[in-house]
C-alpha cells in the first residue's frame, strides 16, 4: 500500500468514524441528557450508517490487513470503541452515569482518530513541511 493510500484511509477513518461518533457528545453539556439526546448518542455509537461504530472502524482499517493497525492511536481508538460497544445495554437503559461516561469516551475516540490521521499525513512522501505542525 502506498503512503498516499494510508493517508486517505486514515482521513476516511477520522471522517467516517471519529467525527460522527462524537457528534452528540461534544454538544451536550454535562448532566443535561434527555431521552432525545440519549437517542442521538445511541445512533452515533451503534447506528453509524447502519452499523456499530466499532464495526465501521474495523471495516475501514482491519486489524489484520491495515497498515494503520501498527499505529498506537489505532490501538487506542480500537480499545475505546470496544469499551463503548460493551456499554450498549446500559446506554439503552438510559443510565445517566453510563451516558456521561460514553460521551467522554466518544470524544476520546475522535481525538485518537484525529491524531492517527495527522500521523499518517506527516509520514506521507512528497509533502513539504512548512513551519511547525500543530
Amino acid at each position: 500500500m502506498f503512503r498516499s493510500d494510508i493517508r486517505r484511509a486514515a482521513s476516511a477513518l477520522a471522517h467516517d468514524v471519529g467525527k460522527y461518533v462524537a457528534r452528540t457528545a461534544r454538544n451536550v453539556p454535562d448532566g443535561a441528557w434527555t431521552p432525545e439526546l440519549a437517542s442521538m448518542l445511541l445512533r452515533d455509537l451503534y447506528d453509524l450508517r447502519g452499523e456499530h461504530a466499532l464495526h465501521a472502524f474495523l471495516r475501514l482499517a482491519p486489524a489484520a490487513t491495515s497498515p494503520l493497525a501498527a499505529f498506537p492511536e489505532w490501538t487506542t481508538a480500537h480499545d475505546l470503541l470496544r469499551e463503548l460497544d460493551a456499554m450498549e445495554p446500559a446506554l439503552r437503559a438510559l443510565e445517566a452515569p453510563a451516558l456521561e461516561s460514553a460521551a467522554h469516551l466518544a470524544l476520546r475516540v475522535e481525538v485518537a482518530l484525529g491524531e492517527l490521521a495527522l500521523r499518517a499525513r506527516i509520514g506521507a512522501p512528497g509533502r513539504r513541511r512548512k513551519g511547525k505542525l500543530p
Binding site: 493517508r7 486517505r8 482521513s11 476516511a12 477520522a14 471522517h15 490521521a117 495527522l118 499525513r121
Partner: peptide, 8 residues
C-alpha cells in the same frame, strides 16, 4: 462541513 485534512 469538513476540514482540509478530510480533503484527501
Amino acid at each position: 462541513m469538513t476540514s482540509k485534512e478530510d480533503l484527501a
